[in-house]
């Protein structure tokens, strides 16, 4: 009898766990997504190109788009290090043959660019499509994305200047991608099934093995690196980053002058910082674009300076200060644009 009831219990548990797998099991919660909804949001492109939209774009068209929409952050040739790390450079014809970027192991690379790292061309397509340009993500049509990617491939010397990239030939690009063989998943840091069980990695086996030694663990203490002097002050007054009471004090790193209250930041300066203006324009120094004081000295004697500058900041532009274009800033409210321009014209203080 005892044995029998246990069997029933096991059966009941099994039944319950089966029920948990039934679908639509939270009555009244959620609804079916429409095909149009799934299409609107399901924009990811996988390494096997699942999800890749149809389309094509030429290197020429890509150059045009790149200069208009991308160069302000990435430089005309995708080489700029001003705002983000460079997109192209550091790869060779030989890397295209081997699928391993040699500079990564030889230490010759001054800096890793996107194309020295990426092993899957789908990644670049997916990311441009979902997140670029910086201030207007998802505004590019598939043909635009193909064109911009074609231009980047040309800059990387992977395709000729008359190349047209499309959903039909992107697979050929994968075969010549310079670092396509440059990834390994043979490590213990994937939290799912191991490669041996159809997943990724070694099943969680760590690559270091320290011991919890307690006494006389070594004979000498070797300090390999200490805080450089410049780094002691690079983060401001450390005294002010700790409580003025308790078991310790912040170390006074800047001396007396830092004791004075920090200058109040103007609301316009805050707005310029928040909206990314300061990434390209300094108050006194040229970064990617002109400094605010350079703008001021050019426009200060023009009676319609305010209106003209508001229009320029809003629409973006190119040519006045050089070939690197400024992206449009249609996302800013007119009143905010006016505040920013007034601030620039009053010396950006």
């Amino acid at each position: 009898m005892f044995r029998f009831s246990k069997t029933i219990l096991v059966f009941a548990l099994f039944g319950a766990s089966t029920a948990a797998f039934a679908f639509d099991n939270f009555k009244g919660i959620g609804r079916q997504a429409t095909p149009a909804e799934v299409k609107a949001w399901d924009i990811d492109v996988r390494p096997d190109f699942k999800g890749l939209p149809k389309g094509s774009g030429s290197v020429d068209k890509g150059q045009e788009l790149f200069e208009e929409k991308c160069a302000s952050c990435h430089g005309t040739f995708g080489e700029s290090n001003e705002v983000f790390t460079p997109l192209v450079g550091g790869t060779t014809k030989d890397d295209m043959k081997t699928g391993r970027v040699k500079g990564l192991s030889s230490g010759e690379l001054p800096q890793r660019t996107t194309f020295t790292k990426v092993a899957t061309i789908s990644t670049v397509f997916d990311y441009i499509q979902r997140a670029m340009p910086w201030t207007a993500p998802k505004s590019l049509k598939p043909d635009d994305v193909y064109a911009i990617l074609a231009y980047m491939l040309n800059l990387s010397e992977m395709v000729p200047a008359d190349f047209v990239l499309s959903d039909k030939n992107i697979g050929d690009i994968q075969k010549i991608l310079p670092n396509r063989n440059g990834m390994t998943t043979d490590h213990g840091m994937w939290t799912g099934a191991s490669a041996a069980k159809g997943g990724i990695g070694n099943g969680g086996k760590p690559d270091t093995s320290n011991k919890a030694c307690m006494k006389n663990c070594k004979t000498e203490v070797k300090v390999a690196s200490s805080l450089p002097d410049y780094a002691r002050t690079a983060h401001g007054e450390l005294y002010d980053q700790n409580r003025p009471f308790g078991p310790v004090r912040g170390t006074k790193t800047l001396g007396g002058e830092a004791a004075a209250a920090p200058a109040a930041v103007s609301p316009a300066m805050e707005m310029a910082t928040k909206n990314g203006c300061m990434a390209c324009h300094g108050v006194n120094n040229k970064i990617v674009g002109p400094s605010y004081n350079e703008v001021l000295s050019r426009y200060k004697d023009q009676t319609d300076a305010e209106d003209r500058l508001v229009a320029k900041v809003k629409a973006g532009g190119q040519g006045v200060w050089g070939s690197i274009p400024m992206p449009p800033n249609g996302h800013l409210k007119d009143e905010d644009l006016k505040t920013l321009v007034k601030w620039i014209l009053s010396g950006a203080k």
Partner: peptide
């Protein structure tokens, strides 16, 4: 695939390192 990959001395990057 471009960031959050760990460059090893061999020049290979560890991908999908998560924990």
């Amino acid at each position: 695939a471009v960031h959050y990959i760990d460059l090893m001395p061999s020049g290979l990057h560890r991908q999908y390192s998560s924990v």
